[in-house]
Nucleic acid binder design. Sequence first.
DNA 1: TCCTTTATGATAATAATTATCATTACTAAT
DNA 2: ATTAGTAATGATAATTATTATCATAAAGGA
Lengths: 122, 122
Amino acid sequence: MKNTRQKEIILDAVNHLDNHPTADEIYLFLKKDHPRLSLATVYRNLNQFALEGKIRKVSVPGDSDRFDAVLDVHEHFYCEKCGLIHDVSIPGLEAQLLNHPTMKITDYKLMLFGECESCRAH
Amino acid sequence: MKNTRQKEIILDAVNHLDNHPTADEIYLFLKKDHPRLSLATVYRNLNQFALEGKIRKVSVPGDSDRFDAVLDVHEHFYCEKCGLIHDVSIPGLEAQLLNHPTMKITDYKLMLFGECESCRAH
DNA sequence: TCCTTTATGATAATAATTATCATTACTAAT
DNA sequence: ATTAGTAATGATAATTATTATCATAAAGGA
């Protein structure tokens, strides 16, 4: 594991772009200032960071994976009107899911769907 | 919406293959008796049935979509050891997720991860 | 500075799913 | 029954996201 400029700017970008960017969005964002950056490097490092627990990979059914630098427990809500992914807090959910009586559940991936507050107002 | 022999055998197959088959698994299963069946037809009808609510599409992060004929509320548990998807009941979960104070949540997709009972016994 | 090793960049490969379009076959009306 | 019209199918091309490959570049320790 060598430290590289690429790792640095990619991790910075995930923190900076706080709207759950895709690998490609991160790539395009960084390409402006770092034209020699490769999309493969972005994918490689995002996956590595996710494995190390530095970021979270957010699976969106039927769409590209997204990445999230916020590590606190929270859920993701996909607004079917505006297409944005919003953070949602559901207290007690994690404990409820992980403390199943028979199954040894160690992790989960959840995506909520509906219409966000902002879109509902219109 | 015309009734066809293909629609009939595809829906039957989802009911018969109760281990959350993929489109390709359904296709290969049916191909034995119906060699002229096309994979595109399988995909088309599975998606149509899912839209109509006759079956459920189960998204598996990083893997093919799967299909489920069981319509009763239940969750899916992916055993990281044996790779099988098990049905899990978590009473009260649906109500908890859909009754969010601020967001209008109408649906959700959840996948649980861990090690199943059978694998834990070994 | 040199050497070894790992990471990168560019691109090919893969895999799942959807799109296309000529042909087939339901269904309803004659 | 026959026909006409429409929707579905089969075969395959296209698409899209992601991973694999491999020659070159650059970390980091000696």
